[in-house]
């Protein structure tokens, strides 16, 4: 029957089973490919993946001028860009969204521009950002920040309007609130979990924007490495990078969820 529950042990067995089957199918495909071509690197086996792992962790540079491993260089570059971009985009959209939801005279000039910009696929704006920021770190930060800013400013604005009822605001005035207190003591705590939920949902798009920009313009970072390595069909390193991206995304998602549960135990979605 639809939605009928299954026992927990079956749930666990099935989730592990899914993973095993997926890996099994990959193993078979990989073995067949190796049978055709001894030196294939498109579907590397366990040995190939092991080599890939060693490679991404190997120190780079020369004896006189040592550099950290690819993994370290790329993680540092990409994570810095992702966090800086997300932080700027999130903070800006929270400030603008709340102000728009609180004051009509701020909403009036900004709302049309923001709704328009939110409709342009952010990656299509890349060339523009390239002209504005060159290919420095700022380009990637700007791509991520502006990529999430417009749609997130819209959702913060919506939340400010819809999650905070007129009654809630009037009530606060009868309790002696000032305008600033309405914003900081009523609107902010009410929409904060909704914003955390939004940030969680924006992590995916933020990574898309970052990788897209890095594939095109970077000389270090996850997107750059994936492009360089797949050009040479060295998929054993590419797969490690993809797996790391997936794991990183899951981890951030989980952290945001926990943060929301910790900060807003009352929130019910």
């Amino acid at each position: 029957m639809v939605r009928s529950p299954i026992p927990p042990w079956l749930m666990i067995v099935l989730s592990i089973g899914g993973l095993v089957v997926a890996l099994g199918v990959y193993g078979i495909l990989s073995a067949r490919q190796t049978a055709i071509n001894e030196t294939q690197s498109v579907l590397p086996g366990i040995k190939g993946m092991g080599e890939g792992f060693t490679k991404i962790r190997a120190p780079q540079g020369t004896e006189s001028n040592p550099k950290p491993s690819w993994l370290w260089q790329d993680t540092k570059a990409s994570v810095t860009r992702l966090f800086a971009g997300t932080a700027i985009g999130v903070v800006a959209s929270i400030v603008i969204g709340i102000l728009m939801g609180s004051y009509r005279w701020i909403e009036a000039p900004l709302a049309p521009i923001i709704s328009f910009m939110a409709k342009i696929p952010p990656t299509a704006m890349l060339p523009l950002y390239m002209i504005a920021f060159g290919t420095s770190t700022n380009l990637f930060i700007a791509m991520v920040a502006l990529g999430i800013f417009f749609s997130m400013a819209q959702s913060v604005f919506q939340a400010t309007r819809q999650d905070v009822t007129q009654e809630a605001i009037q009530k606060a005035y009868t309790l002696g609130a000032s305008d600033m207190e309405i914003i900081f003591e009523i609107i902010w705590p009410q929409i904060m979990p909704r914003i955390l939920e939004n940030i969680r949902l924006q992590i995916g798009p933020a990574m898309v924007f970052l990788i897209a920009a890095e594939v095109l313009f970077a000389d270090v970072g996850f997107g750059y490495r994936i492009r360089m390595e797949s050009r040479l069909l060295r998929m054993n390193t590419v797969y490690w990078y993809l797996a790391l991206l997936g794991g990183f995304g899951l981890l951030l998602d989980w952290l945001m969820l926990k943060l929301r549960q910790y900060l807003a135990p009352w929130f019910q979605g």
Partner: peptide, 20 residues
Amino acid sequence: TGPSRHVGMVYQHYSLYDFL
């Protein structure tokens, strides 16, 4: 002239702040 601490209000719904 506007809502103030001199006049209190209890609505049928939406009476409390969810986050407190």
